[in-house]
Nucleic acid binder design. Structure first.
Lengths: 118, 118
DNA sequence: TTCGTATATTCGATAAATCGAATATACGAA
DNA sequence: TTCGTATATTCGATTTATCGAATATACGAA
């Protein structure tokens, strides 16, 4: 059972282990939104967003509801928003190291995206 | 900057997105432990544990300190323990769905491990 | 039914994670 | 120095994640 709980936690973490999916959850912080709006806000490919939404759906992070032509998404539990907020504090608390870590991460891709920070 | 923060969060999540690494962090909940004890408690391969520890180290989740022959690990910030606790509450709150999700996950590997739940 | 819009799924290629086995390193004791 | 213990790293194989392009589905309006 302890095992199951850890497996469950790992699943949640994995569901959130992508910047785009985090952006989606954050976009839904103040309530539900149709997929189209999410896509527009994030500025990603439609298919890509849909794939990420599918991941969040499969891991039960978001709920969805159809209304006519569109699909509205919402975060299933505000507890997850709370987790994101805790990590924001974590980020700030360790700001110096965080930045170091990020720049180090960026270096490996800086050649790829030309260093732009949209 | 909003981007950097999300990238940072995704990194933390990814670092924790594995049952073994969660088990490691939980083992360190009450203070530092030498690698050997961690390995013993988790019952995993030495090399495997060391690899997971390396991930946690790279993502700044744990700190390490050498003392003679052994290396002591500790969680860098109790905030992360808090996150794990929130997820435990999340698990309990959605117990029914959680179990459904887990059994569904188990099914795909039940043939492999013979259904045993150590 | 046909069309247009909103969203989802499939496909194939590439990158990243994971594992055990083997090997390497660090360090204290003899 | 040599040995034994504790821990880390490398290697090669396998699985999983990620992406854009293309295609499919759902549904309201005409």
């Amino acid at each position: 059972m302890q095992d199951a709980l850890r497996q469950f936690k790992a699943n949640i973490f994995q569901a959130l282990a992508h910047p785009t999916r985090i952006a989606i959850v954050e976009a839904l912080r103040d309530g539900e939104l149709p997929a189209g709006v999410i896509i527009e806000r994030l500025g990603v490919e439609q298919a890509n967003a849909s794939q990420h939404l599918a991941v969040l759906k499969a891991k039960q992070i978001v709920a969805h509801r159809k209304e006519g032509n569109q699909v509205f998404y919402s975060v299933r539990d505000p507890l997850l928003i709370e987790v994101l907020d805790i990590l924001r504090r974590y980020f700030q608390a360790h700001l110096t190291e965080s930045m170091a870590m990020l720049t180090e991460m960026k270096q490996s891709e800086s050649v790829v995206n030309g260093g732009k920070n949209e």
